[in-house]
Design a protein around this nucleic acid. Structure first.
Length: 189
DNA sequence: TGAGTGATTGACT
DNA sequence: GTCAATCACTCAT
Protein backbone atom coordinates (compact mmCIF):
# COMPACT_ATOMS: atom_id res chain seq x y z
CA UNK A 1 0.00 0.00 0.00
CA UNK A 2 1.29 3.45 -0.83
CA UNK A 3 1.81 6.19 1.70
CA UNK A 4 -1.04 8.07 0.12
CA UNK A 5 -3.57 5.39 0.93
CA UNK A 6 -2.76 4.96 4.60
CA UNK A 7 -5.37 7.47 5.63
CA UNK A 8 -8.14 6.30 3.34
CA UNK A 9 -10.47 3.36 3.84
CA UNK A 10 -12.83 2.65 6.69
CA UNK A 11 -12.22 4.85 9.69
CA UNK A 12 -12.18 1.82 11.98
CA UNK A 13 -9.43 0.11 10.01
CA UNK A 14 -7.44 3.36 9.87
CA UNK A 15 -7.81 3.61 13.64
CA UNK A 16 -6.36 0.12 14.07
CA UNK A 17 -3.54 0.84 11.63
CA UNK A 18 -2.60 3.95 13.59
CA UNK A 19 -1.83 1.78 16.62
CA UNK A 20 1.91 1.12 16.74
CA UNK A 21 2.73 3.99 14.38
CA UNK A 22 4.70 7.04 15.47
CA UNK A 23 3.47 10.60 15.95
CA UNK A 24 6.33 13.06 15.42
CA UNK A 25 6.52 16.78 16.09
CA UNK A 26 9.57 18.86 15.15
CA UNK A 27 8.91 21.98 17.19
CA UNK A 28 11.12 25.02 17.70
CA UNK A 29 11.83 23.72 21.21
CA UNK A 30 12.94 20.32 19.94
CA UNK A 31 11.71 17.05 18.57
CA UNK A 32 9.22 14.84 20.35
CA UNK A 33 7.70 11.58 19.23
CA UNK A 34 5.70 8.69 20.59
CA UNK A 35 4.12 5.39 19.63
CA UNK A 36 0.35 5.56 19.28
CA UNK A 37 -1.08 3.07 21.77
CA UNK A 38 -4.70 4.16 22.13
CA UNK A 39 -7.26 5.66 19.74
CA UNK A 40 -11.00 6.14 19.35
CA UNK A 41 -12.97 6.26 16.09
CA UNK A 42 -15.59 8.94 15.52
CA UNK A 43 -17.89 8.22 12.61
CA UNK A 44 -20.49 9.99 10.54
CA UNK A 45 -23.97 9.39 11.98
CA UNK A 46 -22.33 8.90 15.36
CA UNK A 47 -24.10 10.87 18.11
CA UNK A 48 -20.82 11.29 19.98
CA UNK A 49 -19.04 12.80 17.00
CA UNK A 50 -18.66 16.53 16.53
CA UNK A 51 -19.69 15.96 12.92
CA UNK A 52 -23.04 14.41 13.85
CA UNK A 53 -25.11 17.54 13.33
CA UNK A 54 -23.43 18.52 10.11
CA UNK A 55 -20.60 20.80 9.20
CA UNK A 56 -19.96 23.88 11.33
CA UNK A 57 -17.11 26.31 11.62
CA UNK A 58 -15.66 24.36 14.50
CA UNK A 59 -15.82 20.85 13.08
CA UNK A 60 -15.21 21.78 9.46
CA UNK A 61 -11.71 20.18 9.52
CA UNK A 62 -13.35 16.78 10.11
CA UNK A 63 -14.94 17.06 6.69
CA UNK A 64 -11.66 17.91 5.02
CA UNK A 65 -9.10 15.80 3.26
CA UNK A 66 -8.09 12.54 4.93
CA UNK A 67 -4.70 12.64 6.59
CA UNK A 68 -5.10 16.14 7.99
CA UNK A 69 -5.25 17.13 11.64
CA UNK A 70 -8.32 18.23 13.59
CA UNK A 71 -7.38 19.96 16.84
CA UNK A 72 -10.25 21.16 18.99
CA UNK A 73 -10.58 22.99 22.27
CA UNK A 74 -12.89 21.59 24.94
CA UNK A 75 -13.84 21.91 28.59
CA UNK A 76 -12.48 25.44 28.58
CA UNK A 77 -8.89 24.33 29.02
CA UNK A 78 -7.98 21.30 26.97
CA UNK A 79 -7.07 20.51 23.40
CA UNK A 80 -7.51 17.15 21.71
CA UNK A 81 -5.86 15.88 18.54
CA UNK A 82 -7.64 13.90 15.82
CA UNK A 83 -6.55 12.38 12.53
CA UNK A 84 -9.12 13.06 9.84
CA UNK A 85 -10.08 9.95 7.86
CA UNK A 86 -12.57 9.04 5.21
CA UNK A 87 -13.12 10.76 1.89
CA UNK A 88 -13.50 14.51 1.72
CA UNK A 89 -16.98 15.62 2.70
CA UNK A 90 -17.50 12.77 5.20
CA UNK A 91 -17.00 13.87 8.79
CA UNK A 92 -14.99 11.05 10.30
CA UNK A 93 -11.83 11.11 12.41
CA UNK A 94 -9.71 9.16 14.86
CA UNK A 95 -9.03 10.67 18.27
CA UNK A 96 -5.51 9.94 19.51
CA UNK A 97 -5.93 9.13 23.19
CA UNK A 98 -2.48 7.99 24.34
CA UNK A 99 1.15 7.68 23.28
CA UNK A 100 4.19 5.80 24.51
CA UNK A 101 6.88 8.53 24.72
CA UNK A 102 9.86 7.84 22.46
CA UNK A 103 11.96 10.95 21.76
CA UNK A 104 12.18 14.30 23.51
CA UNK A 105 11.08 12.89 26.84
CA UNK A 106 12.86 15.63 28.78
CA UNK A 107 10.99 18.24 26.74
CA UNK A 108 7.70 16.46 27.42
CA UNK A 109 8.47 16.47 31.13
CA UNK A 110 9.14 20.18 31.00
CA UNK A 111 5.94 20.94 29.10
CA UNK A 112 3.84 18.74 31.32
CA UNK A 113 5.60 19.59 34.60
CA UNK A 114 5.45 15.88 35.22
CA UNK A 115 8.37 13.46 35.70
CA UNK A 116 6.66 10.09 35.46
CA UNK A 117 6.99 8.80 31.90
CA UNK A 118 3.76 6.82 32.09
CA UNK A 119 1.94 10.04 33.07
CA UNK A 120 3.27 12.08 30.14
CA UNK A 121 0.95 11.06 27.29
CA UNK A 122 -1.72 8.80 28.82
CA UNK A 123 -4.68 10.99 27.87
CA UNK A 124 -5.82 12.97 24.84
CA UNK A 125 -5.21 16.42 26.32
CA UNK A 126 -1.98 15.27 28.00
CA UNK A 127 -0.31 14.09 24.81
CA UNK A 128 -1.30 17.29 23.03
CA UNK A 129 0.46 19.25 25.77
CA UNK A 130 3.50 16.96 25.88
CA UNK A 131 3.94 17.06 22.10
CA UNK A 132 3.48 20.82 21.92
CA UNK A 133 0.47 20.53 19.61
CA UNK A 134 -1.82 23.55 19.38
CA UNK A 135 -4.69 24.88 17.35
CA UNK A 136 -2.15 26.18 14.84
CA UNK A 137 -1.88 22.56 13.71
CA UNK A 138 -5.57 22.36 12.89
CA UNK A 139 -6.16 21.24 9.28
CA UNK A 140 -2.43 20.64 8.74
CA UNK A 141 -1.41 17.72 6.51
CA UNK A 142 0.12 14.88 8.54
CA UNK A 143 1.99 13.39 5.60
CA UNK A 144 4.43 16.27 5.62
CA UNK A 145 5.38 19.22 7.78
CA UNK A 146 6.51 19.57 11.38
CA UNK A 147 3.73 17.40 12.74
CA UNK A 148 3.45 14.07 10.99
CA UNK A 149 2.71 10.36 11.23
CA UNK A 150 5.38 7.78 10.57
CA UNK A 151 3.63 4.56 9.61
CA UNK A 152 4.77 1.22 11.01
CA UNK A 153 3.52 -2.27 10.45
CA UNK A 154 0.06 -2.46 12.00
CA UNK A 155 -0.20 -4.66 15.09
CA UNK A 156 -1.65 -8.15 15.00
CA UNK A 157 -5.39 -8.28 15.55
CA UNK A 158 -4.85 -10.24 18.77
CA UNK A 159 -2.76 -7.40 20.20
CA UNK A 160 -5.62 -4.95 19.78
CA UNK A 161 -8.21 -4.60 22.52
CA UNK A 162 -11.59 -3.24 21.39
CA UNK A 163 -13.81 -1.62 24.00
CA UNK A 164 -16.40 1.05 24.45
CA UNK A 165 -15.35 4.68 24.40
CA UNK A 166 -14.59 6.84 27.38
CA UNK A 167 -15.98 10.01 28.84
CA UNK A 168 -18.91 10.57 26.50
CA UNK A 169 -22.65 10.51 27.02
CA UNK A 170 -24.12 9.76 23.62
CA UNK A 171 -23.21 6.73 21.58
CA UNK A 172 -21.12 5.50 24.50
CA UNK A 173 -22.15 1.90 23.91
CA UNK A 174 -20.34 1.66 20.59
CA UNK A 175 -17.09 -0.30 20.75
CA UNK A 176 -14.88 2.13 18.88
CA UNK A 177 -11.94 2.44 21.25
CA UNK A 178 -8.83 0.47 20.40
CA UNK A 179 -5.62 0.03 22.36
CA UNK A 180 -2.56 -2.19 22.46
CA UNK A 181 -2.63 -5.07 24.89
CA UNK A 182 -0.31 -4.71 27.87
CA UNK A 183 0.76 -1.16 27.13
CA UNK A 184 1.42 0.69 30.40
CA UNK A 185 0.78 3.98 28.64
CA UNK A 186 -2.95 3.81 27.91
CA UNK A 187 -5.26 6.32 29.58
CA UNK A 188 -7.43 3.83 31.42
CA UNK A 189 -7.61 0.05 31.85
C1' DT B 1 -15.82 12.83 43.32
C1' DG B 2 -16.15 17.47 41.70
C1' DA B 3 -14.35 22.16 40.36
C1' DG B 4 -12.51 24.70 36.78
C1' DT B 5 -12.99 26.71 32.10
C1' DG B 6 -14.69 28.65 27.53
C1' DA B 7 -16.40 27.47 22.77
C1' DT B 8 -20.50 25.78 20.79
C1' DT B 9 -25.31 24.99 20.32
C1' DG B 10 -30.27 25.17 20.62
C1' DA B 11 -34.24 27.39 22.49
C1' DC B 12 -36.12 31.23 23.27
C1' DT B 13 -37.42 36.66 22.18
C1' DG C 1 -29.96 39.34 19.44
C1' DT C 2 -29.71 36.78 24.52
C1' DC C 3 -29.17 32.91 27.82
C1' DA C 4 -28.40 28.46 29.74
C1' DA C 5 -27.00 23.77 29.06
C1' DT C 6 -23.60 20.87 27.24
C1' DC C 7 -19.02 18.99 26.54
C1' DA C 8 -14.65 13.46 23.06
C1' DC C 9 -10.76 16.30 30.13
C1' DT C 10 -7.47 16.88 33.94
C1' DC C 11 -6.01 17.58 38.46
C1' DA C 12 -6.47 17.98 43.27
C1' DT C 13 -8.95 16.24 46.97
Amino acid sequence: MTEHNHFSGLTISVAKKLLGSILIHDSTEGKTSGIIVEVEAYLANDPASHSYRGKTKRNEPMFGKEGTAYVYFTYGMHHCFNVVTGPKGIGEAVLIRALEPLEGIDLMKKRRKQNKIEQLCNGPAKLVQAMGIGKEHNTKDLREGKLRIEWKEPPQEKQIVTTTRIGIKKGAEQALRFYLTNSPFISKK
